[in-house]
Structures are given as structure tokens and as C-alpha cells.
Nucleic acid binder design. Structure first.
Lengths: 114, 114
DNA sequence: GCACTATATAAGCAATTAATTATATAATGA
DNA sequence: TCATTATATAATTAATTGCTTATATAGTGC
């Protein structure tokens, strides 16, 4: 197992960022699949601005990246981020959230773009 | 490596709890050494009630335990706690905080009790 | 250009947080 | 018993958080 070390202050900042059920689930999903904003809105049943604000916090520390594809903006995990190894260790202990995307597919609201 | 799984809601709760520099450092220290309240007051340079309140939050989820020894109350990590394996994986990625206790010893303010 | 969809940002608000000071409780030791 | 030390709890407060609604920006397709 690769062992990294994260400075205490930064570690606390990352844990605080992940210490929100919505953001934690977002990151867990993004670790396996790219997603666009409207899919998260569908999954979490909160307003679109609320989702955008959560994504912004994740983007501000560089943990996720955005990429426009037509009218959608897709978010993905930035595996090059300095905190990613730390975050990954945490995510590995969480249950898969694939079911949430599967439900979107069944409802026909999963965006498969380009 | 033992792989456990923590429910998303509970994981977010634990991460939020650890997402504070003082509490995170406390837990990191307690993972290796028992400590009493006054030592934390000395280490973190905040008021005694502030330390007590942080410890209470950690105790409320069962992550730490208290034990009175004379006039002091010593806190220790509860390794039997259901979240401990999850927490331990996080702590293992953080730098040792032994130096903080060493400084107390040098100043003569480390409590070696009983 | 215009209607529509997707997303971001701004503003406002209620709830939560982490600190403080003041006070209560409990053990120690003269 | 009383002063001292250690700790917990209560009350207060300023800052932060996560949500909402309103609005701005940007791409799509007619």
C-alpha cells in the first residue's frame, strides 16, 4: 500500500470538505464515472445552484475538474491532485454508489454525451 | 489490508467530526498516547472549555473514552468503536504528532499520572 | 434572432459551529 | 474545612454553512 503523508491543516480541510453527505457521495461517484451537473441534481433532489456550489468547493481545491461538452458540463475526478491519494483511501472504504447512476439509466435521465 | 465499509451518512458524519484541525490532531495524538485535558489545553493554546467541548464531540460518537485518575481525566482512543478502522486508515496518512507531547515533557508540563 | 436548456453566480436566510466568559462540580492537600 | 486545581456545562456571540430564489451566462436548434 502506498503511504503518503498529508499536512494536518490540509488534511483537516479535505476532511471537512468531504464531511458533507452530498459532496462525499459526489466524489465517490466521480471516482468511478464522470457526471454532469443535471445528473447530480436528479440524484440528490436538491436545487441546481446547490449542486453547483458543492461542485465549486470541490473544484476550488482541485479535486474535480470540469469539461464542457455541448450544453453540458461534465465533472471528473482529478487523479493528479495532490490530495487524491489521501481521498482515495477514504473512498475505498465507502460502499459503491453505482446504483444511483443505474437508477438514472432506468429512468432514461442519464446523460451519455458525445 | 483489512477492508471495511462504512455507510455514507455515517462516514460523512465522522469526516465532519475529523474535519477540524484541533479534533483531528487530538485523535492523532490519542491514537498513540493517552492524554488529559490540561495537556490539550497546553498544546492547542485555546481555552479549557473549548478543549472539553471538542472532546465531548469525540466522546459522543464513542471514538474516545474518559477515565478519571485522581484530579485528572485521561482520554484514550476507543479501538473497539465501530468507526475506528475507518478513522485509523485516515490517521495512518497523517504525520506523527509525537513532537507536541515531547515539547510538553521538555517544559515539564506532561502529566505522568499514577 | 429567439426560445429553450444547462450551468454559474449573487443575495438572503436559518441552522450550525467554534470560540469565549461565567459558573458548577469534584478531587487534593494543608 | 477551605483554598487550589482540574474538568464540565451553560450562555453568548461572531463566523461559517448549506440551502433557497432570482438572475446572468452560454450553448442548441429552429
Amino acid at each position: 500500500m502506498l503511504q503518503t503523508t498529508v499536512e494536518m491543516e490540509k488534511a483537516a480541510m479535505i476532511l471537512k470538505l468531504l464531511g458533507d453527505k452530498t459532496r462525499l457521495t459526489m466524489v465517490k461517484i466521480l471516482d468511478k464515472h464522470d457526471c454532469c451537473v443535471c445528473e447530480f441534481v436528479e440524484i440528490f433532489k436538491v436545487s441546481q445552484p446547490s449542486i453547483s456550489q458543492h461542485l465549486r468547493k470541490l473544484r476550488d481545491v482541485g479535486l474535480v475538474e470540469e469539461e464542457r461538452k455541448g450544453q453540458w458540463i461534465f465533472y471528473s475526478i482529478n487523479k493528479d491532485n495532490e490530495y487524491y491519494p489521501f481521498v482515495q483511501q477514504i473512498l475505498d472504504q465507502l460502499p459503491s454508489q453505482d446504483q444511483k447512476l443505474k437508477e438514472l439509466e432506468e429512468k432514461g435521465t442519464r446523460i451519455i454525451c458525445c
